[in-house]
Design a protein around this nucleic acid. Structure first.
Length: 441
DNA sequence: TCTGGGGTCCTAGGACCC
DNA sequence: TCTGGGGTCCTAGGACCC
């Protein structure tokens, strides 16, 4: 909570649907619904025209069709959404270097890091209006709703108040009089289950929540959630705007139009998903140790099984093999409606920055350009090794295992594989055997 | 023939280690 | 011979967000 209204939250209005209406004039003024169009689809975004018929996000497409049969139902063009999103994020970064995207259509901007004469209400209001106009301009007509306040929480609450195409600035000091009459549902993190738990205890408004003792809220909702919500109810929020966040997992899941009952087919579908996950990991130059499968049975029961490997991988075969083994632990009699594969525990083995600038760049690392290392043996990124048929970089090490990414300037990033430290195939190519220097920085 | 897909964070219990 | 306690890792599930 700051003394100035210097955190801005921007939300693009009915984003996916608005992009479709922008790109296809015949859709303008008409109800447009973007989402899964198959028998088991749900609505991702409904245009405001569709919302007047009661169509909402996350509603099944079947129900949306019943409510609004004349709407245009579209399955979505994500490259177009990403392109517009990038334009918006760039526009935000013109205002302040501290921009935290929350999704394709939402971001926080820290105005305290912007180059402004002051942070008075007049100034931030003008900045917000200019920004909304700029977004409209760079996207070719999309509108945004903006909230500006003294914290992330209040900025987000404020941006909900004047949708679409609006602006709300909350003057510092007036937060609680705005917040307390509202329903607890306005607090991000309060969903249906939490609303119900609080309701049973007679807590409906934010003021009710603030009046309750912290002990009581913690008893109802658990330590972290209870403590956090109780603070928010008092308007207390010191979270900073954080521009870059490391991904913690990569996953793919698919709901099938008909339940899958054939075990071999399930294995094939998992293997294909493993390939997609592996490709995304390689693109992000990451690997992870924990492989998780997700299985949704015919009756919507959802299960997960996971297995943590000795060393991180981005190898499609390894992920597929693990996924198949995990599927073996699940009774799929009766069929499954969804299968998914994910890898988490990313970057555990990669010390960010050990590669220096090189890790930030997409360009393949030349083995010839290997920097003389001053780090202990087998530190991630420190050594070039030779295993079996080719050279590679040490990617991670520990527990008697060294993990290597095979990579050359010619081939670019290759697969990640692991070897036991006493594997005779493993030879240190560069970097002598005494490593007494302390790690740099 | 209700109920997507991509994520994040939290909890709770058991294993294991010191 | 009646039995510690703290810390960390792993696993499964749940709530929530967009």
């Amino acid at each position: 909570m700051r003394a100035t209204a210097s955190i801005l939250h921007l939300d693009l209005d009915a984003f996916f649907a608005a992009v479709e209406q922008r790109d296809k004039p015949s859709l303008r003024g008409r109800p447009v619904i973007v989402g899964g169009t198959g028998g088991r689809g749900v609505v991702a975004t409904a245009s405001y025209e569709a919302r007047t018929f009661g169509v909402r996000s996350a509603m099944s497409t079947r129900e949306a069709r019943a409510r609004c049969p004349h709407a245009a139902f579209l399955s979505g063009r994500f490259h177009a959404y990403r392109a517009s999103s990038r334009l918006v994020m760039s526009a935000l970064r013109e205002v302040s270097p501290l921009v935290e995207p929350l999704s394709l259509d939402e971001a926080f901007v820290d105005l305290a890091a912007a180059d402004l004469p002051d942070l008075s209400l007049d100034t931030v209001t003008q900045v917000a209006e200019d920004l909304r106009a700029r977004v409209h301009e760079v996207t070719g007509g999309l509108t945004a709703t903006v909230g500006v306040a003294s914290s992330k929480f209040m900025a987000k609450v404020a941006s909900e108040l004047d949708k679409p195409d609006g602006l709300t600035v909350v003057a510092p000091g007036t937060e609680l009089e705005l917040l307390w009459p509202m329903h607890v549902r306005v607090i991000p993190g309060v969903g249906p289950a939490t609303v119900e738990r609080l309701r049973r205890d007679g807590i409906h408004t934010v003021a009710d929540l603030a009046r309750a003792s912290e002990e009581e809220v913690v008893r109802l909702l658990g330590k972290a959630h209870g403590h956090g919500l109780h603070r928010l109810a008092h308007g207390l929020d010191n979270r900073a705007v954080v521009p870059e966040r490391e991904a913690k997992s990569v996953s793919v899941e698919d709901t099938y139009s008909e339940d899958v009952t054939d075990r071999l087919l399930m294995e094939g579908l998992l293997a294909r998903q493993a390939g997609t996950v592996a490709r995304r990991l390689a693109t992000a130059r990451q690997s992870g140790r924990t492989v998780t499968i997700k299985v949704r049975l015919h009756d919507f029961t959802t299960l997960s099984r996971s297995s943590t490997l000795d060393s991180p991988t981005d190898d499609a075969q390894v992920i597929a093999r693990t996924a198949r083994r995990l599927l073996g632990e699940v009774d799929t009699t009766g069929g499954v409606r969804l299968l998914g594969v994910g890898v988490s525990g990313l970057a555990d083995w990669i010390q960010e920055g050990l590669f220096g600038d090189e890790v930030e760049e997409e360009a393949p690392i030349s083995l010839d350009a290997a920097p003389p290392s001053r780090r202990p043996a087998w530190a991630p990124g420190s050594d070039v090794v030779h295993i079996e048929h080719g050279p590679g970089w040490v990617w991670g090490s520990g527990r008697g295992v060294v993990t290597v990414r095979f990579e050359t300037a010619e081939t670019g990033p290759g697969p990640v594989r692991s070897f036991s430290l006493d594997d005779p195939e493993l030879t240190l190519l560069e970097h002598g055997s005494d490593h007494e220097d302390a790690p740099a920085d």
